[in-house]
């Protein structure tokens, strides 16, 4: 079958994607959160595999990662929690994390597990394009997994073209030069960047992440792009209101 991400990108609407840290607030909240997100109309989910040293993340995701690890989350535990997820959930699911836990699990074994579960894509910000292409692309393809690459306002046009050529599904467009959760709202710099990318006519749709916190920023981000990802703002909402409050958050976005 075709990858769920491909099907989703065909839909004639702006996509809302949510990131959360698996194993947070409580170890076994993972499945419930995924199911509630789908029920409330979320289009795609990034399931965060927590890491001890999340270099590209701000305080919110650092804290949720630390709490999840303290709760006992591991790679094996996450796969176990997700083993029946496709019985109840049909939107695209992407695993997002850092490369070292994947490397320790074994890249091939990790991809195989993802395939068995019905994961559609992987985002590993610290697995660079050249290393991926040289060593891991064949494994990802074998298991039908889409590897998602990031671009930022500092990424050169030439590099964006390279990343577009290597991508298959969507490009994760980081909205500003920052770690996650540190800036909110978009200024002229972002608007110009969004327009610059839109004019490049890339073959892959772009999903904007970092700095999206509410309906206003969601609409600004998706004016030119196919969709947007909310992470830190959603996690803050869970921290403050508990996992029963997923629908409150999503309703405020659209």
């Amino acid at each position: 079958m075709t990858n769920r991400i491909h099907q989703k990108m065909q839909e004639d609407k702006k996509l809302l994607s949510i990131y959360f840290t698996a194993g947070y607030p409580a170890l076994n909240d993972t499945v419930q959160i995924i199911q509630d997100l789908e029920k409330n109309g979320v289009d795609m989910i990034e399931i965060g595999l927590p890491f001890s040293d999340p270099l590209a993340d701000g305080p919110t995701i650092q804290d949720s990662s630390r709490a999840a690890l303290k709760n006992g989350m591991t790679t094996e535990k996450l796969f176990e929690q997700l083993k029946d997820i496709r019985k109840t959930v049909s939107i695209p699911l992407v695993v997002m994390g850092y490369f070292n836990p994947m490397l320790q699990y074994g890249v091939a074994e990790f991809c195989k597990k993802c395939h068995e579960i019905g994961i559609d894509g992987i985002i590993m910000p610290d697995l660079p394009l050249d290393v991926y292409q040289a060593s891991y692309q064949a494994i990802f393809k074998k298991y039908g997994l889409i590897n998602v690459f990031l671009i930022t306002p500092q990424t050169s046009d030439e590099r964006i073209q390279q990343i577009d050529a290597a991508s298959d599904g969507f490009i994760y467009m980081v909205s500003s030069a920052s770690v996650t959760g540190s800036k909110s709202g978009f200024g002229n710099t972002q608007t110009e960047y969004f327009e610059r990318i839109a004019k490049m006519n890339l073959k892959n749709p772009q999903i904007v992440g970092f700095g999206i916190i509410d309906a206003e920023t969601f609409h600004a981000a998706t004016k030119n792009a196919k969709g947007a990802i909310i992470g830190s703002a959603f996690i803050k909402h869970l921290t403050a209101n508990g996992i029963g409050a997923v629908s409150d958050f999503i309703k405020k976005i659209r």
Binding site: D53, T75, N100
Partner: peptide, 21 residues
């Protein structure tokens, strides 16, 4: 230590079996 990734390079590092530093 075991082989892994820390601070942008592949090297020997102290980590759990699960790859947490």
């Amino acid at each position: 230590g075991k082989v892994g990734i820390i601070h942008g390079c592949k090297t020997m590092l102290m980590q759990t079996g699960d790859g947490q530093i």
